[in-house]
Nucleic acid binder design. Structure first.
Length: 581
RNA sequence: GCACCCGUAGCUCAGCUGGAUAGAGCGCUGCCCUCCGAAGGCAGAGGCCGCGCGUUCGAAUCGCGCCGGGUGCACCA
């Protein structure tokens, strides 16, 4: 149930009636017509631009057309009043009963209220995190993980079939570095003195891996040449790192459906097959690249390489898939990986990447467009940097020293719920300030707290109501008398609740889960406002001990708020709390 | 030099496929607890929406060109 689309349907029917009456030409394009909440509530409950959008094609003045439409709409029972304003807006006022009607629906649908058919069960693959398997996840990955997971939940709620996927970069040279670093920790576990030079990972997290290796092999690998152990250690180490990463993700409440190994693309003909597809389309050739202008590397020399003609599909320059020595660039397995996703039958692909991968966007989109003949859209969401603060002071992160701030550091200090909510209070493409002290503060400028507080307050009232003998289960409240829900502050809450299905679809369409976080903040705000109105106006208090039947309607209202908060938080992956501590 | 992202109140940021008098929090000023959780609410002050052209009935939103900040730019992923 989406009141806005309901009313839009009513508007479209009114237009058809005008066509039949010969008042409007047939065949007009209704595509641009909207029915939205007006920015200023004084303008009514809903505003439509129908008259202005159609005026030109209909050869009429917007206001004249608006008046005609208004006449039609006034006959509708759900509509209390319509007026024409400004250049030709239709301002529609719904009857309070229409608004109240949202409550039984929410109570009946419960956790499914807002769930949409928009996605039509289309299959979407969301690839996110995909951190190199060389160490624990850090704060940057955390943002990507939270964003990807929330986006997945959002699309699921909007009616898509979603697959959460992690691409393991276990094929490249960084895995050799990892294996050598683990070997050093292994020697250390066998009592050897070791030093970590440049080109190795010095982090403590490899110590247990070295010990585990010793448990498995004793000292049999000590003093052996690299050729004797490298292959085995690559596997052993990446497995250990992926276990670590899985635990990190679990601590944040993220569960992947698929872990896809880059390595599985090598030696299986998959890369060759994907490139063959591109070659058949004439998009692969041998050639030379121009040096980048303005910032010419000192050691530039022209090299003959195998190139993908990504410029055919919107990229700025063609991109190498094969190095001059014949080995693959990283781009080649990435092409094969995306080809694999297309072959698995997804209707849409989403890659969530760190902002430093911005330069990668066009070439990957070009590849997907070419490989799928433009059938499968690829959306790339870049998550900007997280700036860490502690009590307002910047918090330095130094990878060289091996002391970077990990996902675990963050989750252990502030908890998964707070981490997730805070990371979703910014658009993905805006940088995010994360202050360890501030996010735990219990005040209005902490959105996590503010939303949770609303939920806790409702729970508190419902408990008191139950103690006072008022039945508060949704099934009971569905039949409650709502006629006394009439104050402007109460209607404001109803209207905000009614926005939820519409907001959800917008957020899903734009792939923007942060809109859910901002909506919840707004909803909490109108609720807190109504709560405090009870200070001045006793009849607005939720608990009306001397009038149990009046209380029932109010219980229905706040239960509905609680349901929508739960549903929204559920998408963000945050657990609603019943009481503040 | 090129590409991508950002530029909105003193600060941090929302702003819906273009819509009416541009919003919130913090900070500042002043109010509201005999009353369901004041961990809250109400009100006030504070804006050339970076600049300029253009498209449109209508632009913070779309297009082009500038300015400022960030990121990335062959055989690293």
């Amino acid at each position: 149930m989406n009141l806005f689309s309901d009313i839009k349907t009513v508007v479209l029917e009114a237009l058809e009636a005008l066509v039949e009456a010969g008042r409007l030409p047939a065949g007009l394009d209704y595509g641009a017509i909207t029915v939205e909440p007006p920015r200023d509530p004084l303008h009514g409950d809903m505003a439509s631009n129908a008259a202005m959008v159609l005026a030109r094609a209909a050869g009429q003045k917007p206001r004249d057309l608006a008046e005609a439409l208004a006449g039609q709409l006034r006959a509708e029972p759900a509509i209390a009043a319509v007026d024409v304003a400004g250049p030709g807006f239709l301002n529609i006022h719904l009857s309070p009963n229409k608004w109240r009607g949202i409550l039984p629906v929410i109570l009946q649908k419960g956790a499914d209220f807002g769930r949409s058919e928009m996605g039509q069960n289309k299959r979407i693959n969301i690839e996110f995190v995909s951190a190199n398997p060389t160490g624990p996840l850090h704060v940057g990955h955390t943002r990507g993980a939270v964003f990807g997971d929330a986006l997945a939940a959002l699309l699921d709620f909007a009616g898509f079939q979603v697959t959460r996927e992690y691409y393991i970069n276990d094929g490249g040279a960084q895995v050799d570095v990892l294996a050598r670093s683990v070997y050093l920790r292994y020697l250390e576990a066998n009592g050897r003195a070791v030093s970590f030079e440049d080109g190795t990972y010095p982090g403590d997290y490899l110590i247990p891996v070295g010990e585990a290796l010793k448990d498995k092999y004793g000292d049999s690998l000590v003093d052996q040449p690299e050729s004797a152990w490298l292959a085995e250690l690559r596997l052993f180490s990446t497995n250990a790192m992926m276990d670590l990463i899985r635990e990190d993700l679990a601590a944040l409440g993220v569960k992947m459906d698929v872990f896809f190994s880059e390595k599985s693309l090598y030696g299986t003909g998959k890369i060759e097959a994907a490139l063959a597809v591109l070659k058949d389309k004439g998009l692969i050739y041998e050639g030379y690249l121009e040096p980048p202008k303005g910032k010419r590397p000192e050691d530039w020399e022209p090299r003959k390489q195998t190139l993908f003609k990504s410029t055919e599909h919107g990229d700025d320059v063609d991109r190498p898939v094969q190095k001059s020595d014949g080995s693959w660039t990283y781009f080649a397995p990435d092409i094969a990986y995306h080809y694999d996703k297309i072959a698995r039958g997804f209707d849409g692909l989403i890659d969530v990447l760190g902002a430093d991968h911005g330069g990668y966007e066009k070439r990957m989109k070009a590849a997907v467009r070419a490989l799928s003949d433009a059938r499968v859209p690829l959306d790339i969401k870049l998550t900007q940097l997280v700036r860490l603060f502690k009590n307002g002071a910047p918090f330095k992160m130094s990878k060289r020293a091996g002391t970077f701030v990990t996902l675990r550091d963050v989750v252990d200090q502030v908890g998964a719920d707070v981490t997730r909510f805070v990371m979703l209070t910014r658009k993905n493409d805006a940088p995010l300030d994360f202050d360890f002290a501030k996010v735990l503060e219990q005040s209005r400028d902490n959105p996590v707290f503010y939303v949770q507080y609303a939920h806790a307050r409702i729970n508190s009232v419902l408990k008191k109501a139950a103690a006072a003998g008022i039945a508060c289960d949704p099934a009971h409240l569905r039949g409650a008398d709502l006629s006394e829900i009439a104050h402007a502050s109460e209607l404001a809450v109803l209207k905000k609740l009614a926005e939820w299905p519409r907001l959800l679809e917008l957020a899903a369409r734009h792939h923007e889960p942060h809109r859910v976080a901002f909506y919840l903040y707004d909803l909490a705000s109108v609720f807190h406002g109504l709560w405090n109105k009870g200070n001045d106006l006793p009849e607005l208090r939720f608990l009306q001990e001397s009038y149990p039947q009046r209380s029932a309607g109010k219980m229905a209202l706040i239960t509905a708020v609680s349901i929508v908060i739960s549903n929204g938080l559920g998408i963000l992956g945050v657990t609603p709390v019943d009481e503040m501590r």
